[in-house]
Design a protein around this nucleic acid. Structure first.
Lengths: 115, 115
DNA sequence: CAAATTATTCGCAAATATACGAACAGTTTT
DNA sequence: AAAACTGTTCGTATATTTGCGAATAATTTG
């Protein structure tokens, strides 16, 4: 049965996915660290974040699955960095999402505006 | 005891909060509806979305709590619309967040880049 | 005032997320 | 090879999210 009913658009799912990756402050903090240092080892981050090592691994996995970061094992350490292409893509999707809505809502003609 | 230890910055919490509101495709879809029609009644949205009425109310509450939308009871219906100011603010925060990271990571000088 | 309409809240069930320590795996160092 | 170091995975506990139907509330219509 190829009768898979699509409930939402690709785009909506994509936005939700990226947003979900950013939906926990520690993950935002992780991205801040990666952004500020361009690269970071698991251990370095563990020192700066108020969570256990294993918890950090989980959050890193979430970010990796969302495509926002990539990890590289360089024994004995693991180096993480921002996945540039996807990061850029995420930024574009969000900026488009917000811009678009405001344009419509703020449109001069025709459109009914809220009180 | 006013010894509340701040684990994350205001900004990080704020980003996570907005992101959390967008972290479910149905909520993205709701915002799409509100954006395209500038305004929408609960019932109109319920007709277009593949979820129960009560579930819709919950999602609307999440969006309202995040500040992205506002509701106005106009009996017998409830009218929802995008909260322009906060929406704009969210858009700015995100665009800043992504821009900033990429600038740093892509910086020409000094900064160590990932493989 | 009764009935209909609309949307929220409640109560519950199931799934997912978050967090931690312990156990494990892979390298490197001794 | 043993010990040390680094990070992931596992097992578990707890909290939150998601979803629905039933019950409720608030207003309008008959």
């Amino acid at each position: 049965m190829s009768t898979e009913i699509k409930k939402f658009t690709e785009r909506q799912e994509e936005i939700a996915n990226f947003a979900n990756a950013l939906a926990h402050p520690v993950r935002v903090a992780i991205l801040d660290l990666l952004a500020s240092k361009a690269c970071c080892y698991h251990g370095d981050m563990a020192d700066e974040l108020p969570i256990a090592n294993s918890t950090l691994s989980q959050h890193l996995k979430v970010l990796k699955d969302a495509g926002l970061i990539q990890g590289e094992i360089t024994p004995p350490k693991t180096k993480y960095c921002i996945h540039r292409d996807n990061y850029k893509k995420a930024g574009e999707i969000f900026s488009f999402f917000f811009e678009n809505a405001l344009e419509t809502t703020f449109s001069e003609e025709g459109v009914i505006l809220c009180s």
